[in-house]
Design a protein around this nucleic acid. Structure first.
Length: 475
DNA sequence: TGAAATGTTGGGGCG
DNA sequence: ACGCCCCAACATTTC
């Protein structure tokens, strides 16, 4: 081949629309090789989930289909990008590398290394967040560690526009030149998944966003704490947009979500609808907050944000951990949520708070165990947001809830699953229980024999945890 | 984006 | 009529 090319390296930006690095490469007028690299290091990590991996494979397939319509192929490679990309640069006479920044510590290091390794220009873009780390700082120039002031400042910035770019075959290296390589199957990668995988098609997901904004978001404030059995349960109006898995892989861009929400805000007539939209946008801001936190305080990935909690004596309780993972703690609301996680790779936010409070405060098990388990199952499992959520629950993080804020699994259950339908669906052995006993079956005269008794007494567990945390405070 | 313990108030029963 | 007790309902404090 004679004509030179550039590479767009897809990572967490698996879409063609509003893709800043890709569109910048288009404007450069040199044919693009679209590349994705499977790094075995990531595949072997303890934080990989088969379900999320399958969603990724589907997203790659969808991306590949879209690229084929543009006369090219997604070039799939397996191996260390630090070895693979220099080889490709050689083979395809690549004159520049484009990618969108990934702000996790692992990715930052990798991307620095590749830039040093290559003699060609490397162009990277802030694409995955509305406002990149470093851009939202206190007036002293320090990072925010509390959400509310962060959000206040975040709201003062103009947000970047959506990138509009008509992609055409002339922008890409033709399919014949890129030897087509099959997208590996989950089997090839030696993973097994049992979770149903939602559609990963970019256009379809954009439609989902619009549908949510058109018909569901006005009730978001009211329903966001509900416990939907499944995200699309027809019997309920959603209290969730269920878009997190797509933000996770960059199938949907935060700019598109933000600007569409703004439009819906302008169109909405009631104040409560406007408030709901603002709350939903605030969830996007939480995502940005935790990404900024991980960027500025990379040590949170390895341990407590507040180092004073390093001295905390967590319980060594492998049986308790296993019961929690299996949904066999004897607390129906906890068990229902944990089984939902295993079954569909997703939990509503309220359920995540309940089970993380239970693991860290009732079982006094280190939040890192929960963090890892979530990463192994959540379709939307993201290092920054997941870590932030867990440290919030444990009380060890930025802007965390105070250690003494301990959820009572029974009152949470009564409050947020009043009917008991969520529990009945995920715990078939309790399907016949009356509303009166569904939240605390141990109070029955004859509790169902196939459901465990509570593995801890909440009152006693609460006191143990208060004592353990207070022991730290005394130092 | 809690829950439990403790404190306060006020109505009603009762002697 | 009055004081006393009980206790629900609500408020405040504490963890």
């Amino acid at each position: 081949m004679s004509k030179s090319s550039v590479i767009h390296w897809f990572r967490r930006d698996l879409r063609l629309s509003d893709n800043l690095a890709l569109h910048a490469a288009v404007k450069n007028r040199v044919p693009i090789i679209p590349l994705f690299v499977f790094d075995p290091k990531i595949l072997k990590s303890e934080r990989t989930s088969p379900a999320r991996l399958e969603l990724l494979l589907n997203a790659l397939e969808s991306l590949d289909n879209a690229l084929q319509k543009l006369g090219t192929n997604l070039l799939i490679k397996r191996g260390n990008p630090l070895e693979i990309i220099p080889q490709l640069v050689e083979t395809y006479e690549v004159e520049a590398l484009y990618f969108n920044k990934d702000y996790s510590p692992f990715a930052i290091k990798r991307d620095e290394e590749i830039e040093q390794l290559l003699s060609i220009p490397v162009y990277s873009y802030d694409d995955g967040l509305l406002l990149p780390p470093g851009s939202v700082m206190t007036n002293n120039g320090t990072p925010y560690t509390v959400y509310t002031p962060f959000k206040k400042k975040w709201n003062t910035f103009d947000k970047p526009a959506i990138s509009d770019c008509d992609l055409a075959s002339e922008h890409f290296v033709s399919a014949e030149i890129i030897e087509p390589e099959d997208i590996p199957t989950l089997d090839d990668l030696v993973f097994t998944n049992t979770v149903p995988i939602p559609t990963a098609n970019e256009k379809y997901i954009q439609q989902r966003l619009e549908d949510f904004l058109d018909s569901h978001i006005s009730e978001y404030d009211e329903l966001r704490n509900a416990l939907p059995i499944a995200p699309f349960d027809e019997k309920r109006v959603e209290g969730s947009s269920y878009l997190s898995p797509y933000f996770r892989l960059g199938i949907l861009s935060p700019r598109q979500a933000y600007w569409s929400a703004r439009e819906a805000y302008q169109k909405s007539e009631s104040q409560s609808a406007k408030d709901s939209i603002a709350t939903w946008v605030s969830e996007l801001t939480w995502r940005e907050f935790y990404m900024h936190i991980l960027y500025h305080f990379p040590h949170v990935d390895r341990g407590n944000f507040r180092s004073e909690y390093d001295a905390l004596e967590w319980a060594h309780d492998p049986d308790g951990l296993q019961a929690w993972k299996d949904g066999l703690t004897g607390y129906p609301i906890v068990d229902a949520a944990m089984r939902q996680l295993k079954a569909i790779g997703w939990m509503p936010n309220r359920a995540r708070m309940v089970v993380s409070s239970f693991l860290t405060k009732d079982l006094l098990i280190h939040w890192q165990e929960g963090e890892k388990h979530f990463m192994q199952h959540l379709l939307d499992g993201d290092p920054a947001a997941n870590n932030g959520g867990w440290q919030w629950a444990a009380g060890t993080g930025t802007d965390a809830q105070p250690y003494f804020r301990i959820f009572n699994p029974v009152s949470q259950s009564k409050k947020f699953d009043t009917s008991g339908d969520y529990i009945r669906h995920w715990l078939p052995e309790l399907a016949d229980l009356d509303k009166k006993f569904i939240h605390a079956p141990w109070e029955m005269e004859n509790p169902p024999s196939d459901y465990p008794a509570p593995i801890v007494d909440h009152k006693a567990a609460r006191e143990r945890t208060l004592a353990a945390f207070k022991a730290i405070k005394g130092n």
